[in-house]
């Protein structure tokens, strides 16, 4: 007799309750949907916040850069290299057989029409994100006279294309426009 309720319960679960199983299934599924929706704020809070997204354009005055010189600016908290190429550097870059490159691109594809001497790239090695040398005066420019990443020995040429070393891609050219002849707006 002490177990009779348990027995009745078992009987119920076999007959009566089964046809109402959908209630439990619906309740549990709804709870699951609710729990999953809670993940939306928890996950998206880690994505860039509104102030970070808003700070994603940078204006750089390029008028003072002499041929052969480069400056470092900051774009999205990362270094941005702006280099004025000399005629010799342009010539060297154009002399390379594009099809032989690891990441085939011409200098023209990496600059803006009318401003082929101005090379704007991210200062972030495409291997693992170190800052390559070669932008400042007197730094090691690597075997190809462009940039050299000291972390794992990636060599970039005068068009900042990867020529030797572990990096898979050329230094990235960000989206930018000339707002005037001497000012670029990156981002």
């Amino acid at each position: 007799m002490a177990t009779d309720t348990a027995v009745t319960r078992d009987l119920e679960s076999q007959e009566g309750v089964r046809r109402r199983d959908w209630i439990h299934i619906a309740a549990l599924s709804t709870a699951g949907v609710g729990a999953a929706s809670v993940l939306i704020p928890l996950i998206s809070q880690m994505a860039p916040s509104a102030d970070v997204l808003a700070a994603s354009t940078t204006e750089v005055d390029v008028s003072a850069i002499q041929p052969g010189q480069a400056i470092k600016a900051v774009f999205r908290k990362q270094p941005l290299f702006v280099r004025r190429l000399t005629a010799k550097e342009i010539e060297e870059a154009n002399a390379v057989d594009v099809s032989s490159l690891r990441d085939p691109q011409t200098l023209a594809e990496r600059t803006k029409p009318g401003h082929e001497d101005l090379l704007v790239t991210m200062g972030v090695c495409t291997h693992l994100g170190c800052v390559p040398l070669g932008a400042a005066e007197g730094e090691n420019k690597g075997e190809f006279g462009g940039y050299f990443c000291p972390c794992h020995g990636s060599h970039y040429d005068t068009a900042a294309r990867i020529r030797k070393g572990p990096a898979p891609k050329n230094l990235m050219v960000p989206d930018y426009t000339f707002t005037s002849d001497t000012v670029i707006r990156v981002g």
Binding site: R9, I23, H24, A27
Partner: peptide, 21 residues
Amino acid sequence: GFLLFATALAFLSYKQIWAGV
């Protein structure tokens, strides 16, 4: 709206489970 719906289902489920006990 979602919580009212979910709670109503939870209530039905709870009553269903306890029915007969």
